[in-house]
Each structure stands twice: as structure tokens, then as C-alpha cells.
Amino acid sequence: MNELMPIQNNDGKQAVLGRDLHQFLEVSRDYTNWFKQMVGYGFIEGQDFTPDLAKSTGGRPRANHIVSLDMAKEISMIQRTDKGKQARQYFIECERKANEARDTSVENVKSVVAQMTRSEILQIAMNAEQERLALEAKAKELEPKAEAYSSFIEADGKYSVGAVAKMLGIGQNKLFRELRNAGVFIAKGGMKNTPYQQYMRHFEVKAYTITHNSGAESVRHTTYVQPSGIDFIRKKLGLLAIDPLPPAA
């Protein structure tokens, strides 16, 4: 049959857009009210249809729905028009072709397996077993590293931002800049380059007083990184972890 309206692939199942069906059936009422009435016949959201919002030409979301072929067939019958009968037959034919294609695919697989020799089948099984054993060996190889890293980020101690930058393979100034841009560190003022309160658990801030040549004193702050903060920074900035360094004194 010629394609009367586009068929959608909805998680491997055939479906049609509600507005395409509404247009083909030449329904005089607006789509939104018409679809609400159709749903009133007992169709269930999430089972028979799902909402599908798309931008209209005016830029605002326009209501649409992904409708299962079973629901589309019933809606077509409800219309009691020639267009409804035509749509229903079209959906039945679409389902028939999909089933034929699926059956043909299954038969092809069976045919290929039937033509394989016993040694070929055994070889495939052996290859699969070798891959499984290789994956298991790789997992066991990584276990000690994973445990060591977990112990490291849960340990006590603190690290300077410069040391963390070395671990992560970037410069100290760049790390400060990236953390400010990511909204982790304060960007301006007397608390610049110290973490915001919501991230404080991953850091430690120490205040110290400096005396200027004029005799005036001012308070400065130094940010240190907790072990858990290293993994937090790595994930936050999308960086690769490097071998851990000893903690700061």
C-alpha cells in the first residue's frame, strides 16, 4: 500500500503521530479537544499513547501524541467514515508487513544456524567463553586499583590545590579558573578561590593574618582539598585522575 501517513518507531513498536491521524481523517474539530474525546473511550496514557510536545511555527510547544497502532485502528473505526476505514486497513497492512519482516528475519537466522557445521558452532561457543574469561581477568586486574583509589578518596588528610592540579594533569591557575567558572569557587572578593558553602565538605579553608609594611593587618584564606574533593573535582570538570600524591602536612 502507498504510505498514507508516516509510521513511527516507538521503542521497537509501530506507532503514528496523533496530528498525522487527525489530519488524514479530516476531523473538523481542533486536535486538542478531539484527542481528549478519543482518550475518553478508555485509552491509557503510557500504554496506548504518550505525549509528544513539538515546537510550533510560533515557537510555543504544540500538543501531539505518539499513538499505538492498536489505538489508531480503534480511533479510525470510531470515526465511521470512509477515511476511517481506509486508515484502519492501512494500519492492518503495516502490521502485516512488519510481522512478515520479523518472521523472515527469524527464519534467516534459523537457516544460517542449520547450515553451520558442529565444529563451527563449537568454535563460536569457545570464542564466547574466551571473551568471558578475558573480561573476568581484566575485572580482577582492576579490582586492587579500584580498592586503592576508593581507600584514597575516603582517607584523612588534605591537599593543596597545586598538588591536585598535578594529579589531574593541569596547571594550578587553570584549575582555579575552571573551578570558578564551574561555580565551585567564589570568583571575587576577600573569599576568592574558596568554595561555596554547598561544596565545603570536599575542602578545607584556613585563614591566616598577614602584616603589611604599613603595619596594617589583613586576613587571607588558603583552600585545601579533601581526598573526596579530588574525585569531586575530576567528575565536575570531566578530567582524568592521575596517581595520588602524598597529602599536605
Rank of each mutant, 00 (worst) to 15 (best):
N2W: 03
E3R: 06
M5N: 10
Q8D: 05
L17C: 12
D20Y: 07
Q23H: 12
V27L: 06
V27A: 01
R29A: 15
W34A: 02
F35P: 00
F35E: 02
K36G: 14
V39N: 00
I44Q: 03
Q47P: 04
Q47T: 14
L53K: 04
L53T: 08
A54I: 15
A54R: 10
S56A: 13
R60C: 10
A63P: 01
E74F: 01
T81F: 02
D82A: 04
K83T: 06
K83S: 04
K85A: 05
R88T: 03
R88E: 12
Q89T: 06
Q89L: 02
R96W: 04
K97A: 10
R102E: 15
N108D: 10
N108Y: 09
V113H: 05
A114N: 11
T117H: 06
S119I: 14
S119R: 09
E120L: 04
I121G: 07
I124G: 08
A125E: 14
A128V: 11
E129C: 03
A134N: 09
A134M: 12
A137Q: 13
E141H: 08
L142D: 14
P144V: 10
A146E: 14
A148K: 07
A148D: 12
S151N: 15
E154I: 05
E154N: 15
D156R: 08
D156Y: 06
G162H: 08
V164E: 13
A165S: 14
G171H: 09
Q172A: 14
N173I: 08
L175F: 14
E178C: 09
G183E: 09
F185P: 02
K192A: 15
Y196E: 12
Y196T: 10
Y208G: 04
T209N: 04
T209I: 08
S214A: 01
E217L: 04
V219G: 03
V225Y: 00
P227W: 00
S228F: 00
D231Y: 02
K236R: 13
L237A: 11
L237Q: 05
L237T: 05
A241W: 01
L245I: 15
A249I: 11
A249N: 03
